[in-house]
């Protein structure tokens, strides 16, 4: 039933939905909403905008289910849609009028989501150390690693592609973001003595 990677399970549910089993959409929502939430939040949206953007992506999927050629691509399609929509919403909140020209994130780095410092109180010391080093990587790497943390290893490439990051950003090789995090953490006594 629920075997395979997240992308595989999502693909199976989406394929079943498209061939008429409407109940399976609920399963797809349960499977992928967490990663879409983290996508929206890693692009710098506040909680309420992030909710809106995630909902919008789902509604688009239902409206345009036929245009997603390959069921296997549904995870990437949704992450891409959330990322683009987040960019549009973030831009609207910020400065100029929204535009349809969404730059690839090479050119427009996501902002870091603002987080109430009090929230960090729920973390253990080593977890706060990890969080601090992730933040220090910059928004692009932080966003990539945050999403990758929520999928299975064979899906890393699909996620980095959906984020507009180059092939090889992560998986099968470590990639620079993870290499930087690892280097920084292993050199930090607060992590290595945990």
């Amino acid at each position: 039933m629920s075997t395979g990677t997240l992308a595989d399970r999502a693909a199976a549910a989406f394929a079943a939905y498209r061939s008429g089993d409407e109940q399976r959409m609920g399963e797809l929502v349960d499977l992928l909403t967490p990663i879409l939430w983290h996508t929206a939040r890693s692009q710098g949206l506040d909680a309420s905008s992030a909710e809106d953007v995630v909902q919008t992506a789902w509604i688009r999927l239902v409206e345009r289910a036929g245009s997603v050629q390959d069921a296997q691509a549904v995870l990437g399609w949704l992450v891409t849609t959330v990322r683009r929509e987040a960019w549009r919403v973030g831009r609207k909140d910020g400065r100029a009028a929204p535009t349809d020209d969404v730059p690839e994130p090479e050119h427009e780095a996501p902002r870091q989501a603002e987080l109430d410092p009090a929230v960090l109180a729920v973390l253990r010391d080593d977890q706060r150390t990890l969080w601090r080093h992730v933040q220090a990587l910059g928004a692009r790497c932080a966003a990539l690693l945050r999403l990758v943390a929520f999928v299975d290893r064979p899906d890393y490439a699909a996620v980095s592609d959906a984020l507009g990051m180059p092939i090889g950003s992560i998986g099968p090789t470590r990639g620079r973001c993870l290499a930087k995090l690892r280097t920084a953490l292993l050199a930090d006594p607060a992590w290595s003595t945990r």
């Binding site: 349960d30 939430w37 987080l115 973390l123 990890l130 969080w131 943390a149």
Partner: peptide, 20 residues
Amino acid sequence: LLAAMREVYSRIDPVPGGLT
């Protein structure tokens, strides 16, 4: 490291209740 990140983000920024 990635598993630890997953735990951190699940704790500090969880999916809002009722969103699904």
